[in-house]
Design a protein around this nucleic acid. Structure first.
Length: 575
RNA sequence: GCCCCCGUAGCUCAGGUGGAUAGAGCAGCAGUUUCCUAAACUGCGUGCCGGGUGUUCGAGUCACCCCGGGGGCACCA
């Protein structure tokens, strides 16, 4: 333990405190704790951090919790971080941080810059994160906006903790939905040509396919003569397979192009876009995995189909029934394709696979987990997060969404109406597995009072202070040279204590895969900064104090910027 | 019928791996600006944390049961 130092300024403060506790326990001859958990007490009288370690250790130490706590206090090493320790209640150990150390910590935050908040807790892990993966059968709708916000933020969080992460959009461009899409487009094209044609029963009735049919025909008119003739011939005489492939590929590529553009406008870019057809089926991976499962004696034939013995894999991972891998008509199921893809592709480049699914897929999770374990992957290596539905309201009235009926609110309409930052922030102030109500009218009307603007405004205000200083010709010294000791106001120390919490918030959010913790915490940070701004002037005659306060503002601005970046939300210089 | 998620203030939601006296935003009411952006600040909250039983020093948090809401239970994806 370096004397009084705080390492590189990135180590969460609680780790230093834990080191102190462990050292004290060792000196007192008490047993080592398995873990030492810290919380920020609700009440200021309980200190800046508190641990219940003495309560958990009392039995093993054969002493009362309070006695253990007293011994920790007695033997606690002298740390610059800690002003004093108190034993409270049934045996809590309350820690009060030293104001002098806080001002030093601010200096380290400023020195760390955009690295402040990064950590190593996921270092060395290769993570494959799949999200959105909407079917390429229509435009993206609201729930994809939520999944995109959550998935993208998770990627940023895990990356900030040192994980090597690959984000992925998986395209289901095969199977029955693909076929329905192809038939739908073909019907629309024929209708545009004035020929009688009707959508198939499971077709897609949305207007976007009418538009697509027109674009298709427009392209045909602009194409070379041989190309046009080939297309005409296909329509008239082509075999069904050929026609479906032709219209299906056209529809998928155009729809994907549009989905990709909307996501990019949202600030979400994927590392890889994989195709079910090209990257799995064409490589015959499903057949291969069926053989592998068969070799492990986990499949059987029944009524002409091939089944996976998913119900026989033990209580913990077992599915409630067996699942079909290959239908009696010879086609492999979506499930078999997915198992093959995960096993041969995802797990080849990652040791941790995380998928974000909609609630309609949660029944699908046990069979996937069973399959992954059957193929030798550790139980925790495959995780599924269920992103719950978004109930969209407009003035309190539910907006029904159904691709089938062709009525829905598009993701791009949402972005147009409430904006990218507000949309992302709103999605990230809810737990991903909690259903969410989003009232378009309210979000638009109240946009100025949306929490996202409250946080962004803190950043803009700080930028404005610097702008004002520059206009007054105040030469601010490099922040590393500013004497921070004039920061003595209780509010100033309280703000720094908040900033000190940040690395831990990020680490916890990454561990729990819960980006909303960052959003809430940023709201709280802004909530201590705005009153401070109101009560104290930054630009004033006392230059020592002014420079110190400017540095404090720079620290707040830095952390707001870093935090918003983890959410994919912008930090504006002015509003 | 079985499985998963949810149930916390009027509304929308937080409550980290069980901790001390349960929080925020919005809505509502009353105020604040010769001063770096009023997208701000200050004040005003009596909640069977859906109900019950249990686990323990301690339960909004864990286990079980019940009630209510949503979703899932295909040789669909």
């Amino acid at each position: 333990m370096s004397p009084g130092g705080a390492g590189d300024g990135r180590m969460p403060i609680t780790e230093r405190l834990t080191e102190g506790v462990r050292a004290a326990l060792a000196r007192a001859g008490l047993p080592e704790p398995e873990a030492c958990l810290w919380e920020v007490p609700r009440q200021a009288e309980h200190g800046d951090y508190a641990t219940n370690v003495a309560l958990t250790l009392a039995r093993a130490a054969r002493r009362t919790p309070r006695q253990v706590a007293e011994l920790i206090v007695k033997h606690f090493p002298s740390l610059l971080e800690v002003e004093r320790l108190e034993v409270a209640g049934p045996g809590f150990l309350n820690v009060f941080l030293s104001p002098a150390w806080c001002t030093r910590a601010l200096g380290e935050i400023l020195a760390a810059g955009d690295a402040y908040g990064r950590g190593e807790s996921e270092r060395g892990r290769r993570v494959r994160l799949e999200f959105v993966s909407a079917n390429p059968t229509g435009p993206l709708v609201i729930v994809s906006a939520r999944a995109a916000a959550v998935g993208d933020s998770l990627a940023r969080l895990l990356r900030a903790q040192g994980a090597q992460i690959t984000t992925e959009f998986y395209v289901n461009d095969a199977g029955t939905q693909f076929e329905a899409l192809a038939r739908s487009l073909e019907a629309r094209v024929l209708q545009e040509l004035g020929q009688p044609a009707s959508l198939p029963d499971n077709g897609y009735p949305g207007d976007y396919l009418v538009d697509l049919a027109r674009e298709y025909l427009a392209e045909q008119r602009g194409a070379s003569v041989p190309e046009r003739e080939a297309a005409d011939a296909l329509l008239v005489r082509g075999g069904e397979r050929e026609r479906l492939e032709h219209f299906g590929r056209y529809a998928v590529s155009r729809i994907l192009e549009q989905q990709r553009r909307v996501l990019r406008d949202y600030g979400v870019e994927f590392d890889v876009w994989t195709s079910e057809q090209r990257d799995v089926r064409d490589l015959h991976l499903p057949e291969k995995v069926l053989e592998e499962l068969a070799a492990r004696k986990l499949t059987y034939e029944h009524e002409g189909a091939l089944w996976f013995r998913s119900s026989a894999l033990g209580e913990e991972v077992g599915d409630d029934k067996d699942r079909v891998l290959r239908r009696s008509n010879g086609e492999v199921t979506y499930f078999a394709v997915d198992v093959a893809y995960h096993h041969y592709v995802k797990f080849r480049s990652a040791d941790r696979v995380i998928n974000l699914f909609g609630p309609d897929h949660h029944g699908y999770v046990p069979r996937m987990k069973a399959a992954m374990q059957a193929l030798g992957h550790p139980p925790d290596a495959f995780e599924v997060l269920i992103v719950q539905l978004v109930t969209l309201l407009r003035d309190g009235q539910p907006v029904r969404m159904s691709k089938r009926r062709g009525e829905f609110v598009l993701m791009e309409e949402l972005l147009e109406e409430v904006g990218r930052d507000a949309a992302r922030f709103t999605f990230l102030t809810r737990r991903h597995d909690s259903p969410l109500e989003f009232d378009l009218a309210v979000a638009t009307r109240q946009s100025a009072e949306n929490p996202v603007y409250y946080v962004q405004y803190a950043h803009a205000r700080i930028a404005s202070i610097y702008k004002q200083a520059a206009e007054q010709g105040i030469g601010v010294p490099p922040l590393g040279e500013v004497d921070l000791s004039p920061l003595r106001e209780g509010e100033e120390i309280a703000i720094i204590k908040r900033l000190v919490q940040y690395p831990e918030i990020v680490r916890g959010a990454a561990r729990a895969l819960e980006p909303h913790r960052v959003a809430y915490w940023l709201r709280e940070l802004a909530g201590v900064f705005h009153p401070y701004y109101k009560n104290h002037r930054v630009i004033l005659d006392d230059r020592r104090l002014m420079f110190a306060r400017l540095a404090l503002c720079a620290g707040v601005g830095r952390v707001v910027r870093n935090g918003l970046a983890l959410l994919g939300v912008s930090a504006p210089e002015s509003m």
